[in-house]
Structures are given as structure tokens and as C-alpha cells.
């Protein structure tokens, strides 16, 4: 069952164009969204969150269009980014207290669990956190309101190998609980570790959207790793 669908989403900037992006996300699967820097990953994710105004195309969650149902849909999805920090000089506890008032389904037990698991101190401020801890804080907010779909923009950026391993294991656990995870990355080993499906974007256009096995079979040569396939495909695009 497809829980998220994008159909022919287009967005034009003066120096970049997202070209008819279409793909769907299956319920309870982990989908890795890969592409080089500037390929259109963040623009696609921003479109999915209605942060940017798309030129055309349709985005729907749980069978209903995002347009007109934004409020209800956002109750059921979670977003995290590794690159932005919110309210750097406010205590985590203050940010959480305000955030929870927006979610009737806020799960305090889950919040406490992940707070401990991520080793976050509620009395700290985002400005006092390392890049990796900021990622974990953003993820904590996303995980504490029983989100059915997690949209994560480069969640493993800035994480040390141990934390990355923990995070990818967490993805697998969440998947077992039926959570759909969509994460962008340019680290191919993340995909090898946990992705069921791969969506590959290059120059604003989706080049492949399929299961990881199919991607390896269709795009890969004999003995090629995911990283080698990705590098070769990118070189072919550039040449």
C-alpha cells in the first residue's frame, strides 16, 4: 500500500529545475533518497512538506492530497533535518513543551525513551549541542508524536560511525512497528545497511525508483557495490 505519492511535481528556480518528480512510498518500508549535492533532494523534501510552492504536480499522503489537508497530514508525519537548528538559545525542555501542545497524540513515554537513548539533556540549548546531537534532537521531536511517516533530510550527516549505526538500527526497529521512513543521503553505506527501496535523483529528475535489489540488478554491473554504481551513473550523466 502506498502511503505517500508524488505525481509530476515540478519546481523551477532561476538556476535549477525539479522535473516531473514522481514516486511513491510503501507503508512500513525504508526508502533511501540518494543523489549528489544539488541534485534536488532537499527541494523534493521541501515540496513534500509544503515549504515551497510547487509549479505543478500532486502530492498526497494516506490517499488524500496535501493541499487542503495539510494540518491533518502533518499530525501523522514527522520531519527531521541534520542541517538546521531551531531556537538555538532556548532550552530543549522549552522547545519540547511548546511543540507537544500541537500534538494531541504526543507520546510522553516515547519522548522519555528516546531522550535517554539519544543521551540528550533537556536543560541544554541547541547551541550547546554538537551537529550529531542536533540531528538527534530533531529526530526526537519527530519520533515523539507517533508519526506514521518520517521524512528525514540527511539525518546521518555529522553523526559519528557509532551514532550512525545506532540510528540505522533505530530505523529498522521503527519499520518493524509499521513506520514508513524516507530519508535523503549521499552516503551509500546508509542505503546498504537499511534501505528497502531506493529513489535516485540526478539533475532534478528521478532516474530510478525501485527496490534496492532491483536497483542493483538493473543499474549495477557484475560485482559493483552501490557506491560504485552511484559514481558510475553520475559520471555518465556528466559526460
Amino acid at each position: 500500500m502506498n502511503i505517500v505519492e508524488l505525481a509530476d511535481v515540478c519546481k523551477t528556480y532561476p538556476s535549477f529545475r525539479l522535473k516531473e518528480v514522481s514516486f511513491s512510498l510503501e507503508k512500513g518500508k525504508i526508502t533511501g533518497f540518494i543523489g549528489r549535492n544539488g541534485a534536488g533532494k532537499t527541494t523534493t523534501i521541501k515540496s513534500m512538506l509544503n515549504l515551497i510552492h510547487t509549479d505543478s504536480g500532486e502530492i498526497s499522503y494516506f490517499g488524500v492530497p496535501l493541499s487542503g489537508n495539510e494540518k491533518e497530514i502533518k499530525q501523522r508525519i514527522g520531519y527531521s533535518t541534520g542541517t538546521v537548528s531551531w531556537y538555538p538559545r532556548k532550552k530543549i525542555s522549552e522547545i519540547v513543551e511548546v511543540t507537544r501542545s500541537f500534538y494531541p497524540d504526543w507520546d510522553e513515554a516515547a519522548y522519555r525513551k528516546y531522550l535517554g537513548l539519544f543521551g540528550l539533556d533537556e536543560n541544554k540549548k541547541p547551541i550547546e549541542l554538537s551537529e550529531g546531537m542536533k540531528v538527534k534532537f530533531n529526530l526526537l521531536l519527530a519520533l515523539s508524536h507517533k508519526a506514521e511517516v518520517l521524512i528525514l533530510d540527511e539525518p546521518t550527516s555529522g553523526l559519528d560511525p557509532f551514532s550512525r549505526d545506532e540510528l540505522l538500527e533505530l530505523f529498522k526497529t521503527l519499520k518493524e512497528h509499521g513506520v514508513t521512513i524516507f530519508f535523503s543521503t549521499h552516503i551509500t553505506s546508509d542505503l546498504e545497511r537499511c534501505a528497502d527501496n531506493i529513489i535516485y535523483i540526478s539533475d532534478g529528475k528521478i532516474k530510478a525508483a525501485c527496490s534496492k535489489a532491483d536497483f542493483m540488478h538493473d543499474q549495477g554491473g557484475p560485482g559493483e557495490t552501490l557506491e560504485e554504481i552511484f559514481l558510475r551513473l553520475e559520471r555518465e550523466v556528466r559526460s
Binding site: E70, K71, K74, W86, Y87, K90, T99, Y103
Partner: peptide, 13 residues
């Protein structure tokens, strides 16, 4: 503090 983007990500229109 990136307040506008944070707000736009909350479950509000």
C-alpha cells in the same frame, strides 16, 4: 532562530 520554518513544519496550515 529559524522560527518561520519550524512553525511551518508544525501541524498547522
Amino acid at each position: 532562530a529559524n522560527d518561520i520554518v519550524f512553525s511551518a513544519l508544525l501541524p498547522v496550515a
